[in-house]
């Protein structure tokens, strides 16, 4: 089954203004369910922008984007959000953990708007923290947790509502070799559970890892090569 379909996709930032940027142009890509895809390319090549469209953060300027069977073009923000929160888990380069909250509260944030009562969301969040081996940090303020642990918290938060698609933007950029490897091993685990995973990275360690099914290379907002 195809999870994501992109056809003649273009994204132009600040269209019609002096600071107009064509970040993506003529992107054609299909991603199967349970596929692990690595987006490669130099900085500014459009990886993050492509990931944002696949993650239903904003619709493309033109072309077709179909994620989880739904066409995103011209969908209002409200429906993008609704679609996003049940389908997609994000892992960010700088983790994007809210530093003023505790680790547990951070993981519970996605569950709050899904209408989970306090006891249920606590139970769910603790279970996923335990799986990632950071449940002993649950009541720590997020600002007092080490980088490696913080990424586990970020992964826990991405997984807590059990999304079908995981999107990770430069997930290993702030990790050392050992932590990067253990992250990729965990992605393997998730792949075995049936998740669809898209990673962006210019780290060869990621591209060469066994979990990766396909590498797509980008430059100047276009796909220049694709190999399995």
């Amino acid at each position: 089954m195809i999870m994501i379909v992109l056809k003649d996709l273009c994204k132009i930032y600040n269209k019609g203004q002096v600071n107009e940027v064509a970040a993506l142009s003529g992107i054609n890509l299909q991603i199967r369910e349970n596929e692990v895809l690595c987006l490669k390319g130099s900085s500014g090549s459009g990886k993050s922008t492509l990931l944002a469209i696949m993650g239903c953060v904003f619709p493309p300027t033109s072309g077709v984007a179909e994620v989880g069977g739904k066409k995103l073009s011209r969908l209002p923000d409200r429906f993008l959000t609704l679609h996003r929160r049940g389908l997609i888990g994000f892992i960010f380069q700088q983790f994007n953990i809210l530093p003023q909250l505790t680790v547990l509260d951070n993981v519970m944030v996605p569950l709050m708007v899904l209408g989970y009562p306090p006891v249920a969301r606590r139970k769910k969040a603790l279970a996923i923290l335990k799986r990632l081996g950071v449940s002993h940090r649950a009541d720590f303020p997020a600002s007092q947790v080490s980088g490696g642990e913080l990424q586990r918290v970020a992964i826990a938060r991405a997984l807590v509502n059990n999304p079908a698609i995981i999107l990770a933007d430069e997930p290993t950029a702030h990790l050392d070799h050992k932590l990067s490897l253990s992250f990729l091993d965990f992605m393997m685990e998730l792949k075995e559970e049936g998740k669809t995973i898209i990673l962006t990275s210019h780290d060869p360690l990621v591209a060469d890892h066994v979990c990766v099914d396909r590498i797509v290379e980008m430059a100047d907002g276009r796909i220049i090569s694709s190999c399995s």
């Binding site: 993650g55 953060v57 409200r78 959000t81 929160r85 708007v113 509502n161």
Partner: peptide, 15 residues
């Protein structure tokens, strides 16, 4: 940034 993160994690503007 907090508002951005909440929105990325599925919070509506109204939330």
């Amino acid at each position: 940034r907090e508002i951005g993160i909440l929105k990325l994690l599925g919070w509506q503007t109204s939330d």
